[in-house]
């Protein structure tokens, strides 16, 4: 791999981390979904670039799955759900943005150090790619932890899974694993979204109850 190809791969992986940070920063559901779509697009670009560089045509399939499902269908579907539930207002973040961002920086630093330390012998691109994907995974978890809203938790989960896909494509010589993991993860995502949908109903009933309590003068 030449220097420029190497750099572009890095840049795309780094942009994925950046997109995760942008997601951490958003506090409105619509913009969160838009950023998630961007996240998935960056992932698709990254996978496509790997397909081009590694000359592995099956990765183009992975890229197009990411683009179609994650960047278009799922955001649109979530968008509709939000409209139907009428919850297009601010996300209640459990922790402030500043602290979340700080924690995010800490997590990226942690994953960098862990990955670069445990894989000293490996190929430079692979180690740094792995470090980036671990960061994306951890940041996804962080989004899930810091948000109370179920839709944003789903989005956090999906971005986490994007990190896994990034890890799988970055490493050479794992085509089978890639296929399986992609298929598996999409499946998981659908199941989880299904489960979360129930929870969303539950939760928003209870949120309404809290709103009623507040009207009665009890601090919710």
């Amino acid at each position: 791999m030449s220097g420029l190809q190497f750099d572009i791969a890095h840049l795309l992986a780094g942009s994925l981390v950046l997109a995760s940070f942008v997601m951490l920063y958003q506090d409105r559901l619509y913009s969160l979904l838009n950023v998630y779509a961007m996240h998935a697009t960056v992932l698709a670009m990254s996978v496509a670039w790997q397909a081009f560089v590694q000359e592995a045509p099956h990765l183009y399939l992975t890229a197009s799955i990411a683009l179609v499902f994650k960047a278009i269908i799922i955001p649109v579907a979530l968008h509709r759900i939000i409209v139907r539930l009428g919850i297009h207002r601010e996300i209640e973040t459990a922790v402030g943005v500043g602290l979340t961002m700080m924690a995010g920086i800490g997590l990226v630093a942690l994953s960098m150090v862990v990955m670069l330390r445990v894989t000293p012998g490996a190929d430079a691109l692979a180690r740094e790619d792995l470090a980036f994907s671990l960061s994306v995974v951890l940041l996804g978890l962080l989004i899930m932890v810091t948000r109370r809203n179920a839709v944003s938790q789903v989005v956090g989960f999906m971005s986490l899974e994007n990190g896994l896909v990034l890890a799988a494509t970055g490493a050479k010589g794992m085509p089978l694993v890639v296929e399986i993991s992609v298929a598996f993860s999409v499946l998981i995502a659908f199941i989880v979204i299904g489960i979360f949908l129930f929870r969303i109903r539950e939760r928003f009933d209870s949120v309404d109850v809290q709103a009623l309590d507040r009207f009665r003068g009890e601090r919710g």
Partner: peptide, 25 residues
Amino acid sequence: IPEFLGAALMLALLATLLRFVSGSL
């Protein structure tokens, strides 16, 4: 505004951190 600028601060910190831990990023 503090959140907006805080994001800039964090990005800058991330850039520097990447530079610290890995020479090639």
